[in-house]
């Protein structure tokens, strides 16, 4: 069964000409429709996240500033990130959609969930919006699970490093954050030597990849660098920052994945969940609408074991050396007790 939480952001929070807009949600929903799931599809509509759910991951002062900024009509937050008068509600609704997905999975105790919501979240820091992101949706969900005693794995396969998620859980031993991302690229964080804070050493796993890296390289990063850590961590829930901007058609970056690669990654990540009903996918990036639609179809089709159309998986791109280098740099950082790094947002 597929539980879709949303759609959220299909009309509100938009700016003419900006690539992070409501058309993305329409492409996502079209990708879900292409699976023709019938009764295997359940849609849930959550409530906007409440303040006490947001303050687990964001500072009260930031939430106050963002509220006031939107109430004043919004504007540019930075050269990439905007808000409008309805963005505060849209952002809270996107964060609430993740919480609703978890509730629905718990109720059914089976299936997988996809959070079809925007604005995206993984760049949002504890006290700052950036990179199109206002509230960190996946962090709000993970923090809710941690507050109930769960151990949460976050896999972030968006082409950009999720600096906000990394910063928020930098020193939290109950969250394991794993990211594959293009390097160098926005936001500039995500080096392999960034391994987590003193109470959570090793619970941040970064594998930066060069432009042109193909799907087999991303799988290699997951299998060779992340898998041993994940196996040892033994998560009780798996959340995925499912950006689709690592697709070769995406205008925002230069990795070379296909829709079939996302299906392959989804199957691999699903294997990290302890049992059915413990996997939630969150929409992050993905700005080529055709690729986004096809990648959503392939990802969810693979998770459900249903028939779907997808491009062939890709292989042969550069990056194998960078995976090996990341593994070595990580091992070196883990061996240096004197290495204390600030959270991801400042690196």
């Amino acid at each position: 069964m597929l539980i879709v939480s949303g759609p959220v952001g299909g009309s509100e929070h938009h700016r003419a000409g900006h690539p992070e807009g409501p058309t993305r949600i329409r492409a996502v929903m079209a990708g879900i429709d292409d699976l023709h799931l019938g009764t295997d599809l359940q849609t849930v509509h959550g409530s906007p996240a409440e303040r006490q759910q947001l303050t687990r991951v964001h500072s009260a002062s930031y939430l106050d500033e963002l509220t006031a900024f939107c109430e004043a009509g919004g504007g540019d937050i930075d050269p990439d990130t905007y808000a409008t008068e309805d963005s505060w509600l849209a952002a809270r609704s996107a964060a609430g959609a993740g919480l609703a997905a978890i509730d629905a999975l718990r109720q059914h105790n089976d299936g997988v969930a996809f959070v079809a919501a925007r604005p995206p979240g993984h760049h949002a820091l504890r006290d700052r919006a950036m990179g199109f992101c206002l509230l960190n949706n996946i962090a709000v969900a993970a923090a809710a699970l941690v507050s109930e005693g769960e151990r949460v794995l976050i896999v972030d396969w968006d082409v950009h490093h999720g600096n906000g998620t990394q910063e928020i859980f930098w020193d939290d031993p109950n969250v394991l954050y794993v990211s594959t991302h293009q390097w160098p690229l926005f936001p500039g964080s995500g080096k392999a030597r960034e391994i987590g804070g003193p109470h959570s050493r090793g619970h941040t796993v970064n594998v930066p990849l060069p432009p042109g890296a193909t799907g087999d390289i991303v799988r290699r990063a997951i299998d060779e660098v992340a898998f041993p850590v994940i196996d040892s961590f033994a998560p009780t829930w798996v959340l995925v920052s499912a950006g689709f901007d690592a697709h070769r058609a995406d205008p925002m970056a230069d990795l070379a994945l296909s829709s079939g690669d996302f299906a392959d990654l989804a199957r691999a990540v699903a294997g990290f969940a302890p049992r059915p009903g413990r996997l939630v996918m969150f929409l992050e990036g993905g700005y080529d609408l055709v690729a986004l639609q096809a990648s959503v179809t392939a990802t969810l089709g693979a998770l459900l074991g249903t028939s779907y159309e997808a491009e062939d998986t890709t292989s042969g791109g550069i990056g194998a050396e960078m995976v090996s280098q990341a593994k070595a740099e990580r091992a070196d950082a883990l061996g240096r007790a004197d290495l204390v790094l600030p959270p991801g947002g400042l690196l």
């Binding site: 990130t81 950036m130 690229l185 500039g188 964080s189 400042l346």
Partner: peptide, 10 residues
């Protein structure tokens, strides 16, 4: 690469 604040903090 990055937002102005993060880049200047580095």
């Amino acid at each position: 690469n990055g937002d102005p604040c993060s880049v200047l903090l580095r």
